[in-house]
């Protein structure tokens, strides 16, 4: 077919074919009006025309069928992965997974994420709000926060030497509770009790028994621990020179309850009585008695929170890990 050159540009020429087609072709030094046979047509034809632009996008969409579809699919799945990833990160680092309640007189709730990051700190009562106002917890660990809040409380006059700090850990997960308990026992409690000479009671909401403390109590006060489910006052640890502090450290599980009606300090021996009633287990061994308890009930209402602690004591045999369940079997 012959083409008539209609217009020439530097890079291309417009030719009119004998069949009436008008094409852009490579300009091989053509001149207007010339008739040529052999053309090299341009493959992309763009234009400023809007409607033409629409046409072009249509074409591209049609072309998307093969590789484009695969790409699209990949993009979608990548987005899904990202979303789940983001959700996971949020869940792991930002969502509240458990809370630690710190009670001096000011009461403070510390919300923590699964990754042990502190999400929020709230004052529960007025004093608590005063205590936490202006306190920056960003990037700090739980022990650090507890410790600093303790010191702050002391400096604000809420906490006196020899006073008490109550810590309660609440979470859906027993394991997480146990972990936090461990951390508090070996971290904040130890340091706080050293520096402030205060008593710290740590109360897991569910199973309070923690393995590590057990050994010590056994040595110190084996008899006492065993029978009492309800009240635990651990003020006097024999291990350390300062009774108050050590007690706190050693016995995380037990609750020193000033509130509890039953004897606080001296209580150790009397414990058996309540246990028996509560625990169906006939054995003298204290843990078992505990196990019988509905752990949950324990803490707050009836027993004045103290009950848990006792478990720990009695069971020298318990492993830290097993704590919650093992007791039950019996």
């Amino acid at each position: 077919m012959r083409y008539m050159v209609m217009e020439t540009h530097l890079a291309y020429a417009v030719v009119l074919g004998q069949d009436g087609s008008v094409l852009k072709v490579a300009n091989r030094r053509y001149q207007v009006g010339e008739k040529v046979n052999d053309i090299i047509p341009m493959k992309v034809t763009g234009s400023a025309d809007a409607s033409e632009a629409v046409n072009r996008t249509d074409v591209r969409e049609i072309k998307m069928s093969g590789r484009g579809r695969a790409l699209k699919l990949m993009a979608v799945s990548a987005a899904a992965v990202l979303m789940f990833g983001a959700w996971g990160i949020y869940d792991f680092g930002f969502a509240t997974y458990g809370s630690v309640y710190m009670t001096i007189n000011p009461e403070v709730r510390i919300d923590m994420s699964r990754s042990d990051r502190i999400v929020d700190i709230d004052g529960i009562n007025e004093d608590g709000e005063t205590l936490v106002s202006g306190y920056n917890y960003a990037g700090k660990s739980l022990s650090q926060v507890i410790e600093e809040l303790g010191v702050k409380a002391a400096s604000m006059g809420y906490l006196e030497r020899g006073g008490e700090i109550g810590l309660r850990i609440e979470s859906e997960s027993d394991r997480w509770t146990a972990e936090q308990q461990d951390e508090l026992i070996y971290g904040a409690a130890e340091r706080l009790s050293d520096s402030l000479k205060v008593t710290i009671e740590i109360n897991g909401t569910e199973d309070t028994v923690v393995a590590p403390p057990e050994t010590e109590p056994v040595t110190t006060a084996p008899e006492t621990s065993a029978p009492e489910p309800e009240t635990w006052v651990i003020e006097i640890p024999e291990v350390t020179p300062e009774p108050v502090e050590t007690a706190a450290e050693t016995t995380p599980a037990p609750v020193q309850t000033p509130a509890s009606t039953q004897a606080p300090a001296p209580t150790k021996p009397p414990a058996p009585a309540p246990t028996q009633t509560q625990s169906p287990v006939p054995q003298p061994v204290p843990h078992q008695g505990d196990s019988g308890y509905g752990n949950s009930n324990y803490g707050d209402s009836a027993y004045g929170t103290s009950g848990h602690g006792s478990l720990a004591y009695g069971d020298s045999g318990y492993d830290g890990s097993g704590y919650g369940e093992s007791g039950y079997d019996d």
């Binding site: 217009e7 540009h9 417009v14 008008v22 852009k24 009006g33 234009s47």
Partner: peptide
């Protein structure tokens, strides 16, 4: 002839390049 046609087309705001794109 082509020049003449081009003039008439340009009066309608069209160039040969446009025609080629529009073909």
């Amino acid at each position: 002839e082509i020049e003449e046609l081009s003039k008439v087309l340009s009066r309608a705001g069209v160039t040969f390049s446009d025609v080629a794109d529009n073909c």
